[in-house]
């Protein structure tokens, strides 16, 4: 089993809430991603067993949504919004800045497996642009100084 006992328990608990078990697919994938950072065939199979839904349904859903990486990523997944409101306030140059600071290009992971940098669509933070999401947290109204501090902070925590 790749999923921990705790995850399995959480998934079962979620599945029990819904009138139909199938509704637990997204919550299950979310729980799996929280534990593993990504999902794959083995995880689909485990989820399908836990919530008793054909495995293909889990795989179909998992690949439809963007929040379930299909391969391991760095410890911190940096997602920069590149959509219009953020772009008007410099999202593209923010990405460039991060690339330069991290020494990688968009889509890559730092050699120490600490950071993965990607750009994503609007994250609903338009009036506090530019912004990025790192794992589950939002960082808004970004400036160069803030970005420096955030990276520093995460590095020191790692």
């Amino acid at each position: 089993m790749m999923l921990s006992e705790e995850s399995v328990k959480a998934i079962k608990e979620r599945a029990g809430r819904y009138p139909h078990r199938k509704s637990a697919i997204l919550p299950a994938l979310t729980i799996a991603c929280r534990q593993l950072g990504y999902v794959d065939e083995t995880v689909y199979r485990e989820i399908s067993k836990i919530i008793r839904i054909p495995m293909v349904e889990v795989a179909e859903a998992a690949t439809f949504y963007t929040m379930f990486p299909k391969a391991p990523r760095g410890k911190y997944l940096i997602q920069v919004c590149h959509n219009i409101s953020c772009a008007l306030l410099g999202a593209d140059s923010l990405i460039g800045y991060l690339e330069q600071k991290l020494g990688i290009t968009k889509g890559e992971t730092t050699p120490d497996d600490l950071f993965t940098l990607i750009s994503v669509e609007c994250l609903g933070s338009c009036a506090t642009a530019p912004m990025m999401q790192i794992n589950e947290d939002y960082y808004e109204n970004l400036t160069r100084q803030k970005v420096d501090d955030i990276l520093q902070d995460l590095r020191s925590k790692a």
Binding site: Y44, P54, M55, V56, E57, E60, T63
Partner: peptide, 21 residues
């Protein structure tokens, strides 16, 4: 039967067998 599915979305959506099946 659940051995065939559709994966990804939009214009990169694709039909394929169930992973590993």
């Amino acid at each position: 039967e659940y051995d065939l599915g559709v994966y990804e979305r939009g214009n990169i959506a694709e039909i394929n067998s169930a992973p590993g099946h």
